[in-house]
């Protein structure tokens, strides 16, 4: 039989590359999580330490608390912005949306260091508050853009219908617009929450080393404790998987294909 070139074969290089450089390396994390750094033998101690040591439990607590805080603040600040921009009446709204995107092209470390310079010149001591401010500052566009694109797609007839049926502006907002923008809110929340618990560059730079989230702990322990670091990474992976499952329940599939934001 002659070898026939099928179009689906073209996906082979892509699939092989993805397997070799994304999935195989992740198996190494699993492997190292069960290997003792000292003896090189099989051990559960890394996993146990990642799940029960006071250091990692404290870090989990802080990560989820500050991740959630960042997400909520970004939502409270960002939703009105997205809503106003999605209204046709707002002049030059397309230009303003682009203006919100441009800073994302400037390296986030430059923006973070600029914030540090501002804090220094204003005499503000670095701590949890400044780190939180930095995370909100860096991740706010990730909240605004998905909500904005979802709000643009909302059927205006539904809003008019609820107005015609006698709903006052507040009811229209809470009973019609907000529920219809849930997919955007979920993907925005995901895009803020995930990086805010896994970043270490922002928190390390802007907290003055006063507190660490999960990302920082993984980064700090990998130098001398690869196994512990890998075990923590597995826990973080489970956390990501969990939040993705939750988001799948609320979002229409198209939105989650990653193209939504861009």
């Amino acid at each position: 039989m002659k070898f026939k070139m099928k179009r689906s074969y073209l996906a082979m290089p892509y699939a092989v590359y993805l397997t070799l450089l994304v999935f195989v390396p992740m198996l190494f994390i699993v492997y190292y999580a069960f290997i003792s750094d000292k003896t090189g033998g099989f051990t559960f101690s890394n996993i146990i330490r990642a799940l029960s040591s006071s250091e990692s439990i404290g870090t989990f607590f802080y990560s989820i608390l500050y991740g959630a805080l960042t997400t909520v603040i970004c939502f409270v600040i960002g939703y009105p912005v997205a809503y106003i921009l999605s209204q046709k009446k707002f002049k030059m709204n397309k230009i303003i949306v682009v203006l919100f995107i441009i800073p994302m092209w400037v390296n986030f470390l430059i923006r973070t260091l600029a914030l540090k310079s501002i804090f220094y010149s204003m005499g503000i001591t670095l701590g949890k508050g400044t780190a939180l401010f930095g995370m909100v500052y860096d991740f706010l566009p990730f909240m605004i853009l998905p909500i904005y694109t979802t709000l643009l797609k909302v059927d205006k007839n539904l809003i008019e219908a609820s107005e015609d049926l006698g709903a006052d502006p507040r009811t229209v907002l809470f009973k019609t617009i907000l529920p219809l923008s849930v997919p955007g809110i979920i993907s925005g929340a995901l895009m803020v929450f995930m990086p805010s618990i896994s970043t270490y560059a922002i928190t390390d730079t802007l907290s003055g080393g006063k507190f660490q989230l999960l990302g920082s702990l993984i980064n700090r322990s990998y130098f001398n404790n690869m196994g512990f670091s890998s075990a923590l990474a597995i826990v973080m992976l489970l956390l990501i998987f969990l939040s993705m499952l939750i988001s799948y329940r609320f979002t229409d599939k198209e939105e989650l294909k990653g193209g939504g934001l861009w």
Binding site: L21, P25, M26, Y32, I197, S198, G215, N219, A233
Partner: peptide, 20 residues
């Protein structure tokens, strides 16, 4: 499978590639 590198945290990708 393509969603994995998109949604995965940078630090996990980085750590795994470093170990690899």
């Amino acid at each position: 499978a393509s969603n994995v590198p998109i949604f995965n945290a940078d630090i996990i990708i980085a750590l795994s590639l470093m170990l690899f």
